[in-house]
Simulated scan of single mutants.
Amino acid sequence: MASNLLQTPAPHAGTIPFSRPPTPGLQPLQIGFCGLGAMGYFMARNLANSRKSQSPPLIVYNRTVAKSQKLLAELGASAVKVADTLGQLATECDVIFTCLVNDEVVTSVYNEFAKALVQSPPTKVKIFVEMSTNYPALTGDLDRLLSSFPHTRFITSPIFGPPPAADKATLVIAMSGDYRSKKEVAFLLVPAVGRKVIDLGENVEKASTLKLIGNGNLAAALELLAETLTLGEKSGIGQQIVYDLITDIMPAPGLVAYGNKMINDSFDGSVGFAMDGGIKDSSHVLRLSAELNCPMPAVSNAHRSMITTRAIHQAQVVAGTQQWDIIDESALIASSRVAAGLNPFDSKKGTGVVRED
């Protein structure tokens, strides 16, 4: 019988590279979540739903309180509790997840956490889990900041996937930092929030580095996709036919999803990944590539297209003619379209292409 037990696959085998954490104590973990943006809202919702029958409510904090109240209204008080301050999140929770917009906000939030921990030093293990897309050096700074407090652990755990993947809990999750903390957190997140964990070891900067590499690859792929669809339109073939070909021969989920936005001019960044986020990420990638003497011209081209597209959109905002207040990263196709003499955001206008049999 013992032999059979040893041969029984563990739950989530192949998706979580850690053994199960120790048997939980009498008191279930109190979980907190900071940052209810395009990704964070779905992640927090799924995490709360996965625990509401057996654990205290997920404590959430967001700078815009309305988003916290929206989640509370959706799931109810048995699943969600709204924190009044960041300090409350830091002192009341055993595990605190953060998913924030940029490095500056991350720095500000963790400084607030540190102030709270000075006033109320932890008496048991407390794990902070940073899930944003940061420059790797920042994660090292955060680790040093939190390590000055007793019983405090820090891991980086950036996520791969767009908001629809966050909604469906199919994200891929990278992790680096303290081994026991990663083990604890991995079983909280899979399958509740994501489908797989990639372990990058003890160095907290490694997961952030992988995240930038992945985002750089996506940015370069979107630039090539935008150029290809624009050439299809300008040549008279039509972007729809080119898109259909791409989905037939290279059906990568990212290309399919972003290509669909491009050909349908679905550039609303309030429900996708905002262009400012793409520019921030590609800036980080280019900084890292420069520091490591590893040129990435494809990412440079994507970065230029995103900045060009943002400038076009900002000019429309000034003129009051914009269709969206926030534009999605997929809108970088506007740069290729303008260079080709086409309308930046409306592929049905002004193509000037005569399609001949």
Rank of each mutant, 00 (worst) to 15 (best):
K196W: 05
E130G: 07
K126H: 12
K168V: 12
P164D: 02
G201D: 03
K124I: 08
S181I: 01
G140I: 02
M175Q: 14
A165Q: 10
F187T: 08
V129F: 00
V197S: 05
V185S: 05
I173P: 07
E184V: 14
D141A: 14
L138K: 06
R180D: 15
A207M: 01
I159W: 03
V125N: 15
P164H: 00
G214Y: 03
K182I: 10
L189D: 09
I173H: 06
K182S: 10
I155T: 05
I198W: 12
G161V: 02
A137W: 07
K206T: 15
G194N: 06
F149H: 06
V204R: 03
V197F: 02
A186Y: 05
S176M: 03
V125K: 15
L146D: 11
P136W: 05
K183V: 12
F128G: 03
P191I: 07
V172N: 15
S157L: 03
L189A: 09
N134Q: 04
D199T: 03
K126I: 10
D178P: 06
V125L: 15
G194F: 02
G214F: 05
A169S: 10
R144W: 02
I127W: 02
K168T: 15
L200S: 13
K183A: 15
T139M: 13
L171S: 10
E184I: 12
V172Q: 14
D167S: 15
A166F: 00
S147G: 07
